[in-house]
Design a protein around this nucleic acid. Structure first.
Lengths: 150, 150
DNA sequence: CAAGCACTTTACGTTAACGTAAACCTCGGC
DNA sequence: GCCGAGGTTTACGTTAACGTAAAGTGCTTG
C-alpha cells in the first residue's frame, strides 16, 4: 500500500497547474489489482474514455479517478450499468437540461437509499457474526476440557 | 403486507411452547419478494433444507431465518458459495472439531474485514453523492435565470 | 368430476462480467 | 536485425444466479 510510482505531480513553483501525469493500462491494472482486460471492458461499457497515442491507450488523472469510483461502486454491489448511468449524467451535467438533472437527483436519491439499507444490513450482519463467533468460542472452550475427540 | 394466511399459531392458553408456524414456498416467496424458483435454487445450493410432506416443501422458522440471512448476505455482495460456507460450518458447530471451529473463526474475521471495507466505501460514496448532488443543484439553480433553452 | 390453483421436477436459456487464446504491432536495447 | 515486454483487436469460453417453459401431482371447490 501507499505505493507511489516515484512520480507525484510535484506541486512545483511557477509550473503549469495542469496535472500531466499519465498512466499505461498496465500501471492502472496493477495499481487497482485488476487485469487490463477488465479496464478495457469498462471502456467498452462506456465507463472510461482514455485518449490514444497511435493505438495505445493513455490514461489521465480523470480516468484513474473514474476507475477508482467504478471499483468502489462494484464493491458495493452496483452493476456496471448503474454506475454508467451516473457517470454519463455527471458528464452531461454542465450543459444538462433541467429534466436530466432532475433525473440525476432521482438516481442519486435511489443510490443513497441503497446505501442506507446496506448500512443497516451491515449492522445486522455484524451482530450475527458476533453471535456466531461467540458461540464458536464457547464450543472451542468446552472442547479444551474433553478428550481429544475421535 | 402484514398478510397472514389465516393461520397464526394463536398463542393459545395452555398450548405447546414450540413455534409450529410453517410456510409454503409461495408464502416465503411473497414475504421476501423473491420467486419460488430462487428459493428452490438456494436449497439446491445447500442453503436451505426444508422438510417435506409428500412432495411438498414445508418451511419452518429456522428456514425462514436462513433465507433472511441469505438474502441479507446477498445484498452485501456475498456469493451463495460464501454464504453456504458459513451456514454449513454453523450447522456443524455443536460437534465440530477444533480445526473446523478455527476455520470458522477465520472465515468470520474475513467477512468482518469485508464489512469494514464496505463501511468505508459507503462513507466515501456518500460524500461523492453529496458532491454530485450539490453540483447538480447548482447547475439547476443557474438554469432558473436563463432562457428556457432549446 | 372437472376445473383451477399451488406445488413439483427436468432441462434448456439468459445475463453480467469478465477470462483466455490467437495473432498482430511497436519500441528500446543488445 | 531480432527479441522480449508491453500494448492492441477479435472472438469464443466461463461462471453465478437465476428465468422460463413443459409436463406432471394433489387438493378442494363449485
Amino acid at each position: 500500500m501507499t505505493q507511489r510510482t516515484a512520480d507525484t505531480p510535484a506541486p512545483a513553483a511557477g509550473g503549469l497547474p495542469r496535472q500531466r501525469r499519465t498512466y499505461s493500462i498496465g500501471e492502472l491494472a496493477k495499481m487497482f489489482e485488476v487485469t487490463p482486460r477488465t479496464i478495457r471492458f469498462y471502456e467498452q461499457e462506456g465507463l472510461l474514455a482514455p485518449q490514444r497515442r497511435g493505438q495505445t491507450r493513455i490514461y489521465r488523472e480523470k480516468d484513474r479517478v473514474r476507475l477508482k469510483l467504478t471499483l468502489r461502486g462494484k464493491r458495493l454491489g452496483f452493476s456496471l450499468a448503474e454506475i454508467r448511468e451516473v457517470v454519463e449524467m455527471y458528464d452531461a451535467m454542465p450543459d444538462g437540461n433541467a429534466r436530466q438533472l432532475q433525473r440525476l437527483l432521482e438516481i442519486l436519491a435511489d443510490k443513497r437509499a441503497n446505501l442506507e439499507r446496506q448500512l443497516e444490513d451491515i449492522r445486522l450482519m455484524h451482530r450475527e457474526l458476533d453471535d456466531v463467533e461467540s458461540r464458536a468460542r464457547d464450543v472451542l472452550e468446552s472442547l479444551k476440557g474433553e478428550p481429544p475427540g475421535d
